[in-house]
């Protein structure tokens, strides 16, 4: 998912990230507020963009697993009515089912638009666009926001690697035989947090020794002036 933008149509990836953010916001508002005709039009547009950009379908299905479970719960709770008086009875509500389907349709469309945006925008462009968007907002240091976003993305793979290593180490010590969930939580989280905090310390020392300042050039947006 992180490197998908490398394989898409050049025009969409070259477009300014700020314009794409604006388009995303517009599309999101239309999906949330639109009626059935608007949803049909947006679904058609989304399908055309998908076929042009050629997003790999397996990534989408992987992302859909969690959302699918949530949508299933929403649809069932909207369409089934449970009577709590004795005898217990479950009845089917057709109007609720229609509303549930519409809600699920909106949510799936929102997710598809999000994936489209992600597929055609690089991380550096996103950071630069965020710094630009934060600039006029008083009290928000935009360079710090961009730096913290970069650090967050830098830490993510490191945490996942260390989590895998910690998990393997715990399994080799037969942690799965322990029934106490708090013990398992603690023995997993504590070494993970200790190691990652040490990494953050080293990074802070490195930034300080290189005289880190917030007055650096943001890649992308400033260069395009």
């Amino acid at each position: 998912m992180f490197s998908e933008h490398a394989s898409i149509k050049p025009f969409a990836s070259r477009m300014d990230a700020r314009i794409k953010i604006f388009c995303m916001i517009l599309a999101s508002v239309a999906v949330i507020l639109g009626n059935r005709a608007v949803l049909v039009a947006l679904s058609g547009g989304c399908l055309i963009l998908w076929s042009l950009i050629r997003i790999q379908v397996r990534h989408v299905f992987r992302s859909m697993i969690c959302l699918g479970a949530m949508l299933g719960v929403i649809f069932l709770t909207r369409s089934l009515t449970l009577s709590f008086s004795w005898p217990l009875a479950i009845s089917w509500d057709a109007a609720g089912a229609t509303d549930g389907l519409m809600t699920c349709w909106r949510l799936i469309l929102l997710m598809f638009f999000g994936l489209l945006w992600l597929a055609v925008t690089s991380h550096a462009d996103i950071r630069a666009a965020v710094a630009w968007l934060c600039k006029p907002v008083p009290g928000i240091p935009e360079k710090r926001v961009a730096t913290m976003m970069s650090l967050t993305l830098r830490f993510l793979p490191l945490i996942m690697d260390q989590a895998a290593a910690t998990s393997e180490a715990q399994q080799s010590r037969c942690i799965q035989n322990r029934r106490n969930p708090i013990y398992r939580f603690t023995k997993f989280s504590m070494p993970l947090l200790c190691r990652t905090l040490e990494t953050a310390d080293r990074l802070a020392d490195a930034m300080e020794s290189r005289c880190y300042s917030e007055n650096y050039r943001t890649p992308g947006t400033e260069n395009r002036k």
Binding site: M1, I32, I65, F113
Partner: peptide, 25 residues
């Protein structure tokens, strides 16, 4: 920063998804 990173589309929310639309979900 976590919410902003997810809001602008980076895949940090559950299920590897991102985007401002997630907040409307």
């Amino acid at each position: 920063i976590y919410l902003l990173t997810g809001a602008v589309g980076l895949p940090v929310f559950a299920g590897g998804a991102g985007g401002i639309a997630r907040f409307a979900g």
